[in-house]
């Protein structure tokens, strides 16, 4: 049992930090601009594809820097020439625009790289077991992912809390009009934040794309989960996103180990549930099987009962 717990904790940490890398940008963009960017997960996908393309030609390490940079620039272009224009049509239009982008990016990726997964592999120099615990390997690449995630987290903390632009961002989160009045160029801040958020998602793609699979469906698969993270954490809150990333990762990781169904529960009370028909289906479901549903249940309850999330900065 202890090995299950230790490995599950490590897996939680890796998956959680990956989620945070994705959700931090999204939550910042929401906090600043009040825009829920549906295309955010597309930046994650583009990061993986850019990294694949760059790593074929010049290797993995340059890709680690170039791919997020490329995605970041793309993000800035999207904000400057797309979102800013659509902003005039209102919030629903903004939502629809980012949703359309999500759709379009997917099709463009298929157009360029095809529908099959591309052969984006873990670099050879990181492809060995780092240590072995209870007979199971912990791969070096997982260690590398942890390292990058933690470095990113520290870097982001320093930027937000120790730099001038970080202070402007913090102020814009709470008092956007005031910041504008003080003479800061808020639209430019928006553009940079949008670009930086996209770049972070791109970075998650670079280190996640080869660990998982780089294929056109990857944005669709991760997109909804990232929304759940920022809703549960509180839209606009970085700390909230951090906590809820780890929380949701843990929830999904540990749920795997629970083979416990309603029928088992009723069994404790001596109730023999029927195994036929609709109720038979329901009592048969094990907790582990609901793994895909748990996050959405959380999100719905959160939105109903505590819409500002765990650490929300503002409500309504």
């Amino acid at each position: 049992m202890s090995e299950f717990i230790i490995f599950s904790l490590l897996n939680t940490l890796i998956y959680g930090l990956l989620l945070f890398m994705l959700s931090s940008g999204l939550t910042l963009i929401f906090g600043l601009m009040n825009v829920l960017n549906f295309a955010h997960a597309s930046f994650y996908m583009l990061g993986a594809y850019f990294a694949y393309q760059v790593s074929i030609h010049v290797g993995f390490i340059p890709a680690l820097f170039l791919a997020p940079l490329g995605v970041g620039i793309l993000g800035m272009i999207v904000e400057r020439y797309g979102l800013r224009k659509v902003h005039a049509h209102g919030h629903v239009a903004e939502l629809l625009f980012t949703f359309g982008l999500f759709f379009l990016f997917n099709e463009l990726v298929i157009l360029i790289w095809g529908r099959n997964p591309v052969d984006y592999q873990i670099p050879d120099f990181l492809d060995f077991p780092l240590f072995t615990l209870f007979g199971a390997d912990f791969s070096a690449y997982k260690g590398f992912m942890l390292l990058i995630s933690i470095a990113m987290f520290i870097g982001m903390y320093l930027v937000i809390n120790r730099t001038r632009i970080g202070l402007v961002i913090q102020a814009s989160l709470t008092h956007p009009e005031m910041v504008n009045v003080l003479g800061h160029n808020v639209p430019a801040v928006f553009m940079y934040v949008f670009g930086a958020g996209a770049a972070l998602a791109g970075l998650a793609g670079v280190i996640g794309g080869n660990f998982l699979v780089t294929e056109p469906g990857m944005a669709m698969a991760l997109g909804p989960i990232v929304f759940v993270v920022i809703v549960v954490g509180g839209m606009g809150s970085l700390t909230g996103a951090f906590i809820s990333s780890l929380f949701l990762a843990g929830l999904q990781t540990f749920a795997v180990g629970m083979d416990y169904s309603l029928a088992d529960f009723l069994g404790h009370f001596g109730i023999q549930a029927s195994s036929e028909g609709f109720w038979g289906d329901i009592v048969r479901i094990e907790i582990a099987n609901t793994r895909a549903m748990i996050p959405f249940l959380f999100m719905i309850f959160m939105l109903i009962f505590r819409p500002k999330g765990l650490m929300g900065v503002r409500e309504e």
Binding site: L36, H91, L95, P224, F227, V228, V231, M235, G277, F278, G280, D281, I282, I285, N289, T290, A292, M293, F296, L297, M299, I300, L303, I304, P307
Partner: peptide, 23 residues
């Protein structure tokens, strides 16, 4: 936005449960 997200969540929930409730 809260409404958009709740409806999305409900959709995902029902789709996921559709595979668990074959009857």
């Amino acid at each position: 936005i809260p409404f958009a997200l709740i409806t999305m969540g409900i959709g995902e929930l029902l789709l996921a449960s559709s595979l668990l409730l074959p009857s």
